[in-house]
């Protein structure tokens, strides 16, 4: 019996080679691998599965009104990407690093992506590595990959969750999105029991199950305009009482403001300096952030926080003096 791999590759070659649309009868005749003694219905099921495999691999197969198949070459094949040498090196470094990272959830697909692009890139091996998660990275990757699939397919998930104070409970959630921050993957979704969007730490989940009911039908609709970045916070944005803070990046640090702001708050230039207006909820954490990311960053507002930064620094200097 012919290997299914051989049949699928032969089908891809046949469609790519065909000068005009082809019917499934001629495919059965001309593509080596379809059993000649197979009944029609079984052949058609096998053909449908093979087409699905090719579509999953990136082939755009079209059927015309007469039921003839052809490959949309422009939609199937890569045109010139036009990256510079340093951009190609950046892609290689990012890819190599992600593939080395046990917490990266999409390694098999990334590997195929890089393999495809390799024919368009000059050969260059870039030493790079990554370890974004420090807690059970492989488990986080496995759960994040399953959650991403559930998110794309709009399927509910069930899991047992242990929160930060050690309370364990079962949850059923409609997953909307995922984000990675400070070494942890998080899932945002509507908790069915609470009927509100919540953020869950993926590393705190156990016994994750994706709903298997009606696998090709979505269980829910993601809210229009959903953007997972709205749920990503900086360390000083957790707490009860929100206040407005303004941080100043002096001339030496202004170039770092955009990267450090991570798309949050509002940046505005004042001469050579930049002022970042950003909501905050934890004054101690905000001061810690200012110092850890310095030098060249200071607090403009609230003024009492600016004063506290100075007094706290005096205390530290005295302690070590």
């Amino acid at each position: 019996m012919t290997d299914a791999v051989e049949r699928i590759v032969n089908l891809a070659l046949h469609l790519a080679h065909a000068a005009k649309p082809v019917g499934h009868e001629s495919i059965r005749r001309d593509v080596f691998g379809y059993p000649k003694d197979q009944d029609e219905a079984a052949y058609l099921r096998m053909f449908e599965r093979d087409k699905d495999e090719l579509r999953a691999a990136g082939f755009v197969i079209e059927a015309n009104e007469a039921g003839l198949y052809s490959l949309d070459s422009a939609a199937t094949f890569v045109s010139d990407v036009g990256l510079s040498a340093t951009e190609i090196a950046a892609v290689r470094a990012a890819g190599t690093a992600a593939l080395s990272d046990p917490s990266f959830p999409f390694a098999p697909e990334l590997r195929l992506a890089l393999a495809k692009l390799a024919s368009r890139f000059e050969p260059l091996e870039v030493p790079a590595a990554s370890r974004q998660a420090d807690e059970s990275p492989s488990d986080q990757a496995e759960n994040a990959a399953a959650l991403e699939l559930a998110t794309r397919a709009s399927k509910r998930v069930e899991f047992v969750y242990t929160n930060s104070i050690g309370r364990t409970a079962a949850h059923t959630v409609e997953p909307y999105g995922l984000f990675l921050r400070d070494g942890r993957w998080y899932m945002v979704g509507r908790d069915i029991a609470h009927d509100e969007p919540r953020v869950y730490t993926v590393a705190r989940m156990a016994d994750l199950m994706v709903s298997g009911a009606r696998p090709k039908s979505p269980d829910f609709s993601r809210p229009a305009g959903f953007d997972v970045s709205a749920f990503i916070r900086l360390p000083f944005q957790y707490g009860d009482q929100e206040f407005s803070a303004a941080l100043r990046f002096d001339q030496s640090a202004a170039w770092r403001a955009k990267g450090l702001a991570s798309g949050l708050g509002v940046l505005r230039s004042e001469g050579d300096e930049t002022v970042w207006s950003v909501p905050a909820r934890d004054d101690a954490a905000l001061l810690r952030w200012v110092v850890e990311n310095g030098p060249g960053i200071s607090v403009d507002a609230p003024t009492e926080l600016a004063d506290r930064l100075v007094s706290t620094m005096r205390k530290a200097a005295t302690l070590h003096g």
Partner: peptide
């Protein structure tokens, strides 16, 4: 000629690039 990245491959590459800034 190389085949374009499928949706899942493209999302994986985008995630790797996001991770690199």
């Amino acid at each position: 000629r190389p085949v374009r990245l499928s949706m899942t491959e493209a999302r994986a590459l985008a995630a790797a690039l996001q991770g690199a800034g």
